[in-house]
Design a protein around this nucleic acid. Sequence first.
RNA 1: GGCCCUAUAGCUCAGCUGGAUAGAGCACCGGUUUUCUAAACCGUAGGUCUCAGGUUCGAGUCCUGAUGGGGCUACCA
Length: 594
Amino acid sequence: MIEQILKNKIALALQQLYQIEISDANVVIEKTTSDFEGDFTFVVFSYLKQTKKGPEQTAQQLGEFLLAQVDEVASFNVIKGFLNLVVAQQYWLNFINQHHHQPNFGFVTKPTGQKILVEYSSPNTNKPLHLGHIRNNLLGYAVAQILSANGHQVSTCNLVNDRGIHICKSMLAWMQHGNGETPETNNLKGDHLVGKYYVLFDKQFKAEQKQLIEEGLTPEQAEKQAPSIIAAQELLRKWEANDTETVNVWKTMNGWVYQGFDASYKMLGITFDKYYYESNTYLLGKEIVEEGLAKGVFFKKPDGGVWIDLTEDGLDQKLVLRADGTSVYITQDLGTADLKYADFDCNKSIYVVGNEQDYHFKVLQLILKKLGRPYADGVYHLSYGMVELPEGKMKSREGTVVDADDLMAAMIEQAEETTIELGKTEGLPADDLNDLYNMVGLGALKYFMLKVDPKKKMLFNPKESIDFQGNTGPFIQYTHARIKSVLRNASAANLSLQFDATEVNLSKVEKELIITLHDFPSQLADAGNQYSPGVLCNYVYDLAKVYSHFYHEHSVLKETNTHQQALRLQLCTLTAEIIRSSFQLLGIKVPERM
RNA sequence: GGCCCUAUAGCUCAGCUGGAUAGAGCACCGGUUUUCUAAACCGUAGGUCUCAGGUUCGAGUCCUGAUGGGGCUACCA
């Protein structure tokens, strides 16, 4: 790529002209702002002390050096300390000619040797997935795909939180009020059925608390003494004692939930290489506590609880094992971290988990480091912000959640309405239309969630639904469909894809399009390095916009210069391919027509 | 109390390791269809980048402090 050549030669120039020693990796060049002539810009200000010359003079000398030494540099101009370099048209034409028909252009095919495990989704099995889970799932899936496209060996896993007091709450309510109701008898999706009883428990629990408070108890007392919660805790004890009936109910209800989750995951288009279940892992980590005590990393308090003192690292003291010998969250996570490392031998382990657990993961990584785990440095918490509604935070127990299944269905329905409204249904069979509604509705949803910087909280307004115009998934899908249409027509007319470089002229927008296409590999790398699908979203949107501009300025099929036409066809081909492959990484499908 | 995140146009968001006149979309107003798909394109308008200092050739970006919003931290996961 040209950037590398330029950096290399700039480093050489600095060394030969001014005896400045700098590695080409540290040379920074950027794309020239559109208001100025040139393709790449090198800013000389920071080198002036060493060159002992003025900015214009320094830039001028560097420009002359590059012009003489680098074939690809056609000309240059200097404005203050900015050296603008113009790359020869031949370079751009060669680039498009070489890569226009390369599938998965920009993907790293040579393995980096890095093994990465991405844990995401990690749902509780007491209620259906909601909007927040959608963000998690899409992020985890997309990040795994992007890392894979960057040449890493990526695996994914889902740590299912299938035990604990919250599950017992749903179980209890079902045992009390379910009358044997099942997903089949009621034709209700399994996870929704279980969620219904979770809400029912909470209602009952709240009512009991209210009554106890009226009877003179404090709110704290009422919360602890309500019959429901006592019964749920009893159920948890029975579960831990492996009581047959309890375990059977637990298995049955979790089974319903898994069926429901599978359907939702399928709809979302996400998969996992491995499932971990907390019921199998929740006892892990106790040996590590022993190990830590022996190593002096942990210490025991008089009551028997085991702690770690992280005050020197700017954190607090943290409990790692209760006085009664039972685990806390971090105990299990230590054990699970070891387990994952044993299973996958990964040098990078990514946890896609909400930002309310920032502190927890800081602690986890710190403990792993202090224990001398070889994989500790590779632990990375991909923290994402909450999805908020206009009314504020979602509360699953209060029913103010946006359900994942409902939302997806609503998006697809919206896509259908809009498609019909625009009269785009002509000539397509019903099956294809249904596929299209799915692609567009889910594409809108996915793009909407992925384009936002993960660490920022985001606002989702279900009433306004999601736009299909502007910076959206459907706009980009539409761009793809239009290109495909052009390519279909071109193929029907047997148009040539070969051009002679001496017979073509690059217009401004054609060149802009080539430069944007050329930039894809580095954007993909950025998205990988930053674990941010948003980088890719913004890039593809930018590409689609540049293409649209090109589309409106030039016609392809009616171009009479066959060389120029071939060039344009190549531009179309590569644009469509990059849109397709990028969207694939984001988990979004692209239609051939829409 | 301590720690973390965040603040950019009326709204939702970009702005990469500091670079030239801070960008999109939506909404608003105006224009474009004998031209390969108008879910499109073009144009107008909209900004003290929360505030105050500092670092330097140069700050939306880095540092310090203040304020607003969110989160975590007191044996839940």
